[in-house]
Design a protein around this nucleic acid. Sequence first.
DNA 1: TAATAAATTTAGACCTGTCTAAATTTATTG
DNA 2: CAATAAATTTAGACAGGTCTAAATTTATTA
Lengths: 216, 216
Amino acid sequence: MNTLAEENYLKSIYHLSVNATSVSTNQLAALLNTKASSVTDMLKKLAEKELINYTPYQGVSLTATGEKIAVNIIRKHRLWEYFLVEKLDFKWDQVHEMAEELEHISSNELIDRLDKFMEYPKFDPHGDPIPDCNGLFKIHNLKPVSSIGINEGGVICGVRDHSKAYLQYLEKQSLTIGKKVTVAEIIEFDHSMILQTEDKTIQISRDVANNLLIAL
Amino acid sequence: MNTLAEENYLKSIYHLSVNATSVSTNQLAALLNTKASSVTDMLKKLAEKELINYTPYQGVSLTATGEKIAVNIIRKHRLWEYFLVEKLDFKWDQVHEMAEELEHISSNELIDRLDKFMEYPKFDPHGDPIPDCNGLFKIHNLKPVSSIGINEGGVICGVRDHSKAYLQYLEKQSLTIGKKVTVAEIIEFDHSMILQTEDKTIQISRDVANNLLIAL
DNA sequence: TAATAAATTTAGACCTGTCTAAATTTATTG
DNA sequence: CAATAAATTTAGACAGGTCTAAATTTATTA
């Protein structure tokens, strides 16, 4: 099918495309921890295979085929993450690297059966939607906690930062998926916020609030 | 750690070592579907890493380190096969290719947790022993059905041929792991055998009998 | 044991995916 | 709008793993 490197490029282009119509060579190089010249080389190959639309100096976007492949990799990644957390009891900050490997296991039958085994979960351990076997998924309309006002609140449903450090911090503060939070106070000086949950009051920085997503 | 190719070489050397003290370049080339010259190149690399004992023209054997790595890959392979059959309902003839990919997922913590999740199975779906997290496993003392006499019998506990065709044939004849069989008759002409199971009588060729392993 | 056959290794090439350094294109700004 | 900066691409190289063809070593056998 496609090589590991190709799959990672498609996945990265997909992720970067969420906030833009076109993705730049440098953006990809940064995300993939490689050099711009390497990216250019690979873009030519992917364009040759008609998985991306590529015009030199003008950035890239996925073709329909390329997007389908990317979404399938993301489906695999998220289903494996769900498996690791729900069945093997890993913590949400431990599963990313393993899923980065597992997402490249080729069999679709395997992933569809895994999906069934887990009873078709709709969201992964970080709150990201899991595409179904046709590549379809709902886009949750979430807001960062930093965007809401005093006495407003909602249920934690996702994160924007998936780093180990951030996830571990949230875990320690019990700010995990499903928790209901309300903004009790906003400190004007640094925009830090005081959150009220069912069992305690927690102060978080603007940075933390910015990456914590809730449904109203 | 080690590359995919290196892991496959170590695994192949291990398997070929079961019936010999030393493994030849050509044996490896045949098993790995590659050319002898490619094997030689890789053997140099593995020797450099001290994973094998290699003297040009004299064949190879695994070092203690190399064997440890090989056994770990086999452990992963067999645990994943067990998972695919027992949890995802695949048939025993469907899992080999998937396990060939899954065995290279690097995390040992993952495989140890998978082991626990399945309650530490001792044999994979083909009856092969699964090494524990220390690399230890019991060698079942099995005999091919072809080696026993009339009115003797035992319980099917393994196969020597792991090919899809062979496994599918056995499945169709209900000659699967755990079945009790007795030799009712041996046809002198071609050494085919008539087996008696609990619910039926089955005639199998010498070839089939040779690859079917039972515990007395 | 000399000649031949089989097995193995070496030499040189290729492909993938990467890199550095240099060249080119596009964007920015005085 | 010309000069500079930033982004991108090209050129040429390299490492891993493979290949074919040729050379070498070991095994076989007449």
